[in-house]
């Protein structure tokens, strides 16, 4: 079995939330705040939703859409924000621009917005991700499969979401390692193409495992 030039280390994470003290009490304020908050806050309310929410709660895709639907009762805006696919933007500023454009276009057709009480406003946060190394290093595709099957779901998030969106590793850590250390660019590309939007970490794990298992069956490693 092929040995990697560098072993892979599965790393889990814990998300530490920080309140920014910035809030929006209506959709116009949401537009203003989205323009000015740090990129990490945009990340927290879009990509971060993927870590925090489970199958039953992913109906809105991101915190902005959820707030528009549940608190502001602006269902048109909620639908427009819900389809924003954070993984398709190479930079957080690009994602911010998309959100700003949607909010701006939506508000052009709205005469008045309703002010919400403080507790129901959109309270901006950001997060710090604390990494936690998990288990032994893996050096073969079979070891990678076994490790992936057992690892804490937060590791899927760290290696496939955090790595891409906030750390500039556009292929994600799995793809990067498979391509550069195990010389399996086709498998890496297939994993990179997995649509992680509006699903769960467990389903993403299942899809990666399916691809890895198929590669092992073909004897490619």
């Amino acid at each position: 079995m092929r040995e990697a030039t560098h072993p892979f280390v599965f790393t889990g994470c814990v998300e530490l939330r920080q309140a920014l003290g910035l809030l929006a009490l209506d959709e116009r304020e949401l537009l203003d705040r989205v323009r000015e908050v740090p990129p990490d806050s945009i990340f927290f309310h879009t990509h971060g939703y993927f870590l925090r929410h489970r199958p039953v709660t992913t109906a809105y895709g991101n915190d902005f859409a959820r707030w528009a639907a549940v608190e502001a009762h602006d269902l048109v805006l909620a639908e427009r924000l819900a389809v924003v696919e954070p993984f398709s933007f190479p930079t957080l500023d690009g994602l911010r621009e998309e959100l700003v454009t949607i909010l701006h276009d939506h508000l052009r057709g709205v005469d008045a917005v309703v002010r919400l009480p403080f507790a129901r406003g959109f309270h901006f946060q950001q997060s710090h991700v604390v990494e936690v190394p998990l288990g032994p290093h893996v050096s073969t595709l079979a070891e990678f499969r076994d490790g992936l099957a057992a690892v804490d779901p937060s590791a899927i998030y760290l290696h496939m979401v955090e790595a891409r969106a906030r750390r500039g590793r556009r292929s994600g850590d799995f793809g990067e390692w498979l391509s550069s250390s195990l010389d399996m660019p086709a498998l890496a590309a297939a994993i990179e193409r997995i649509d992680a939007h509006l699903t769960t970490l467990e389903r993403v794990r299942g899809r990666v495992l399916y691809l890895v298992e198929a590669a092992l069956q073909e004897g490619g490693a």
Binding site: L16, Q18, A19, G21, L23, H123, Q125
Partner: peptide, 18 residues
Amino acid sequence: VFSLPQYARRLGVPAYIL
């Protein structure tokens, strides 16, 4: 550290949510 962002005040130090 606050239980919710809605319970926090703007402070001169970081406010974390647990």
